[in-house]
Amino acid sequence: MNTATGIIKALNSGIKHLAIKRFTLRYPEEKLKFVGDGYQFDPSTGVGIAGSKGRHMLFHDKCTGCQLCSIACEGVAEAIGMVKVPEEHKHNKKAIMPQIDYGKCVFCGLCVDACPFYALYMTNDYELSSFSKEGLIYTPAQLQVKPYVSQDVEIQITNRGATHG
């Protein structure tokens, strides 16, 4: 191929993109859809359930304070510490529950795999930014709250190219 045809072909290929749809997610205005409700784990079968690995969610009525999540995190990020909680449950004699530091967490989800009581799941919430380091430490009371995550768009493939919408 000679030089002139090659350059014209390259320009032509670029000009074609004026006609195809824009493949850009306009992030704060629109947010991607997730599969499922976040990463969960079923200890009876030993297999996880697909989902996004975001902020954790703790079920106070199931947590026994066994510290297995904290032990699982020891070699990874040391993000989980066990803290005293005011309320007392029959199954949680020591009244301790995990507190997670998201400044350290790497969102690998091994703590969820370690929990044998279905007490710790992950949610789709990924917007965790804070103005201080202390703001990134989530207490058991904060982890109890189910987050609201807006899910607007997903990737769609049309004849005029892929787009978010």
Binding site: I49, A50, S52
Partner: peptide
Amino acid sequence: TGARVTHAHFVPGGVRNDLP
């Protein structure tokens, strides 16, 4: 896998979760 990068998906004995 639930993560965009650093999936931590493979484990000895298979993968961590089934396909959605």
